[in-house]
Design a binder for these strands. Structure first.
Lengths: 145, 145
DNA sequence: AGTGCAAATGCAAGTTATTCGCATTTAGAG
DNA sequence: CTCTAAATGCGAATAACTTGCATTTGCACT
C-alpha cells in the first residue's frame, strides 16, 4: 500500500490530529522506516531531509501519536531510551536486532490467552503488557562471526 | 525458607560478590520486599533503617547484581524508571499492579516455546526478552471503585 | 593480629533523555 | 480574510542515572 503525503494528512485528520509540518514529517519518517526509532533518530532523519523541528516538538508529537493510539512507545533493551513504532492493526510485538535495530513483527500477539488465564487466576484487572524479544538478525549474525 | 544475615553474605560470596555493608543492605531489602523496587525506593528503605548508602553506590550494587544474574532489571510502565527484583530460579515474569506496585510472579515463563518457533521462522539468534503484564490487583480495584 | 592492595565507596560534578514555561506562530473554522 | 485555540521554538529545568577521583575497606597473605 503506497500512500501519498496527502493521504497521510488525511489519515492524521481522521484521528483528530491537526496537520502541521512537524507532525507530517515525524509521521512519514515513522511510516517509511520499518523498525523502531528513538526520538534522537527521528530528529536526525528530519535534519538529513534538510528540515528542522525542535527536539521538544518531536517529543510532543510522538506523545500525541501514542495518546491517539497511532504509535507504540517501548524501551530499547540495554539503554535508557524510549523507541517508537507505528501501531499495526491487531496489536503486534517486536523482535528487535540488538546490532542493527531492525525489527520483525510478531503477530498475532501470543499473549491474549495467557492474559485471560492470568486474570482468572490472580483476580487482577489486566490493562496491558510489554513484550519485546531481542537477539541478532541473520545479517548481523554473519557479520559478527 | 528463612535465612539469616550470615546466610545472605555466604550466598553473595558464592556468586563472587565481596560482602560489604551497602551490598548486604541492598540484597536484604530486595529479598524482604516482595515486588519490584526502584533505586529510589531502595535508597529510601536504607535511610528508614537508619543507614546511609550513597545513591551511586546503590546503582553500582544493583548493576553488579544484575551482571551476576541475581537481580533482574526492568522498566516500570509509564515511567522512565528502572525497577529491580530478585531473579527466581527458572526465569519468571511479573504481573505488576500499577497502583500499589505489588507484583505476582508468572511462572514458568510462557515464552520459551514461542521463542523457539520465532527463531526457526526468522533465523534470528534470540538472546532474551522482556515481558511485563500490568493492571490492578484485587485490593486496588476495590479501593478505586 | 597486622599489613598491603585491589576493589568498593562517597562525593560532587557530568551526562542523557525527556519535560516545561512562555513568547511567537500557525492551521483551519467561520 | 480574520480570529483564536492550539502548536511550535527556544531555553531552561528536571529526573534518572553515570563517572572521575580521592578515600576507605574487605580480605588474602603473612
Amino acid at each position: 500500500m503506497v500512500c501519498s503525503l496527502e493521504d497521510h494528512r488525511e489519515y492524521l485528520h481522521q484521528h483528530g490530529i491537526k496537520s502541521t509540518r512537524p507532525r507530517n514529517l515525524v509521521w512519514e519518517i515513522l511510516l517509511t522506516h520499518d523498525g523502531i526509532l528513538s526520538a534522537e533518530e527521528i530528529y536526525q532523519t528530519v535534519v538529513q531531509q534538510g528540515e528542522t523541528v525542535n527536539f521538544s516538538t518531536i517529543y510532543r508529537v510522538l506523545e500525541l501519536f501514542v495518546e491517539k493510539g497511532l504509535v507504540e512507545k517501548s524501551f530499547f533493551p540495554g539503554t535508557q531510551k524510549n523507541v517508537f513504532s507505528v501501531c499495526h492493526v491487531g496489536h503486534t510485538h517486536h523482535l528487535i536486532c540488538l546490532r542493527c535495530h531492525k525489527t520483525v513483527d510478531i503477530s498475532p500477539c501470543p499473549l491474549s490467552d495467557l492474559e485471560k488465564q492470568i486474570a482468572a487466576k490472580t483476580d487482577f484487572q489486566i490493562v496491558g503488557h510489554h513484550l519485546e524479544i531481542y537477539g541478532y538478525c541473520p545479517e548481523c549474525r554473519k557479520i559478527m562471526k
